[in-house]
Amino acid sequence: MKYIAVSLATATAVAVGGLAFVAVPRLLSTESTSTVGSTATVTRAEVEKQVRENYALPLVQERPKAVSCAGGLKARQLDSVECTVTSKDGKKQDILVSVTRVDGSKVSYDYALLAG
């Protein structure tokens, strides 16, 4: 059984000298969680699927047309894999998908845009 757990970011308002500032850490969460079996690996296909469903291209905030990853993720903290994300207009971006947390058979991972 595989599932997605997407964390929701909340806005924090701070009043300073009568002015209110709103801090929004993320407009769109990019964390995914997958359940791994006895292999203790999130497969390449699962990583690509999760990135397609949960990663929005910066500024545009639209889901990618295609995702291609170099491999899967091992269920261990800081393991990572590079992926290429293709937008609907054909532009490509390289991202790094990294394991952020492992809790039993649940592996959480996040995405970061690689400087090109």
Rank of each mutant, 00 (worst) to 15 (best):
Y55P: 09
F21Y: 14
L78W: 04
S32N: 13
T43M: 11
L28Q: 13
T43S: 15
E82F: 07
K74S: 06
Y3A: 06
R101Q: 10
L28D: 10
Q50N: 12
L57Q: 05
S98E: 03
E46C: 09
V14M: 09
L8S: 15
V102C: 07
V22Q: 02
Q50I: 00
R26A: 15
R63G: 14
E62Q: 15
R76N: 08
P64N: 10
G37K: 12
L78K: 13
L59T: 14
G90N: 09
A56H: 10
K92Q: 13
S105G: 02
V16I: 14
Y111D: 09
D110P: 03
V36N: 05
T30D: 09
S29Q: 13
D89Y: 00
S108L: 06
K92S: 10
K91H: 07
G72N: 04
E82P: 08
K49L: 13
A45I: 10
P58E: 00
S34Q: 12
V97I: 02
A115T: 02
E31Y: 07
Y3C: 05
P64G: 08
Q77M: 14
V60N: 05
L59W: 07
Y111A: 15
A5T: 06
A112D: 12
Q50H: 13
A115F: 00
V85A: 09
V81N: 07
A115V: 02
T30W: 09
R44F: 03
L73N: 04
C69L: 09
K106T: 02
G72C: 01
S68R: 11
V24E: 14
C83Y: 11
L96W: 01
T41N: 14
E48L: 03
E31W: 06
R101I: 01
D103A: 10
L114G: 00
L28T: 14
V67N: 10
V85F: 06
D89H: 02
V6R: 10
L113H: 10
L59Y: 11
V14C: 04
V60Y: 05
G17P: 05
R63Y: 12
V51T: 11
V24S: 12
Y109M: 07
L19M: 06
S108Q: 14
V47C: 12
G104Q: 11
S68Y: 04
T86R: 08
T100W: 01
Q61R: 08
R44D: 09
R26W: 15
V85H: 06
D94E: 06
C83M: 04
D110C: 07
R101D: 03
G18H: 06
K106M: 11
S68L: 08
D89M: 03
V107C: 09
A20I: 12
Y55D: 04
L27I: 12
K106W: 01
T35A: 12
A40K: 07
S108V: 09
L8Y: 11
K92T: 13
Y55S: 10
V99D: 05
L28R: 15
L8T: 15
K92E: 15
C69T: 05
V102S: 09
D103M: 03
D94F: 01
K65A: 15
A112Q: 13
F21D: 03
L8D: 15
R52D: 04
V36T: 05
D89S: 07
V6G: 04
P25C: 13
R76F: 11
V102F: 05
A70P: 00
K49V: 10
P64R: 11
P64L: 12
A70D: 08
